[in-house]
Design a binder for these strands. Structure first.
Lengths: 155, 155
DNA sequence: ATTTCCTTCACACTTTTGGGTGATTTCAAT
DNA sequence: ATTGAAATCACCCAAAAGTGTGAAGGAAAT
């Protein structure tokens, strides 16, 4: 098993921290020096661990990659667009008119604009779209458009 | 006289350090708890100051910027997804965050859901989306999704 | 004939979106 | 040190979208 650089850094830090604590414990047992110089002692620890923290941070901070210029040669085999999936439409029980609405919806038209294009009332469009949402099992027109394209119900 | 941001950071650090030491001193006077829990206490101090050190380092050190230039040739078969068009994004002046919102928007999420995912407020999402509509020159989120996909700004 | 589905529409009501304005903070560049 | 872009958020207001219910005509199937 191998450790990443980052894990190694953390390991080193933990070990040194443990060693330091161990050393302090030993000093404590050796000389009872901390009772009357506690504040001084705390200060020393604070400084040591601050430095360690800074060192750790400097080690761990990864340089962020800023600019990425990609030169690309793209060869597109632009074969015919995916066929619309009639079976999926049938399976979901989407009617002709609903499909009309769905198509216009996916191009970004508002309900009112759809109503205008199909010569039906706004309320009718709303009814159709509600039914579409039910059949596609989505909550919003944006989801409907996404899912319909994903299922190749529309282009 | 005014302090630069860097000086302010250092000042804040020193003050918080002083406050901490003061607090510890007070605790020491209040409860003589450190004699029999010294190691525990030392550990706590170590952690606190390590965190402070890390924070200090992260605040003061400017992140190393690594500019990476990648040149590659991409051969795309018909089924592979098109690469996202960085130039188009740059040309339209769409920012990182706006792109985040645009992506989630195109998957069909509501503004509130987007806000939840990005840990920002609903109002912020609205601001971003309004800017997106301006930059993409569209009126609705469905149009934005459609156009963004067409321009290969998103998948 | 009766049933079922599609299509059309209405109305009331709630939720979501979008527009406009302004403020603050942070960061990078000058 | 100043400036500008980006990101954050608030508030108000209007428009659009979505929900629920009900209804009516027509076509196709039973």
């Amino acid at each position: 098993m191998r450790l990443s650089t980052k894990h190694k850094e953390i390991l080193i830090y933990c070990i040194s921290m443990a060693l330091l604590l161990f050393l302090l414990k030993w000093l404590e047992a050796r000389f009872i020096v901390f009772n009357y110089r506690l504040d001084f002692f705390i200060g020393a620890i604070a400084i040591v661990f601050t430095v360690l923290g800074i060192w750790l941070a400097l080690k761990l901070v990864k340089p962020k990659v800023e600019t990425r210029i990609i030169e690309k040669e793209v060869y597109i085999d632009n074969s015919a667009q995916t066929e619309i999936n009639q079976k999926e439409i049938a399976k979901l029980g989407i009617s002709k008119r609903e499909l009309d609405v769905l198509n216009l919806m996916a191009t970004g038209l508002s309900n009112e604009e759809i109503a205008g294009k199909l010569f039906i009332s706004l309320n009718t469009v709303k009814t159709h779209s509600s039914n579409i949402f039910l059949k596609l099992d989505v909550k919003r027109r944006t989801q409907a458009a996404e899912k319909a394209k994903r299922l190749n119900i529309i282009h």
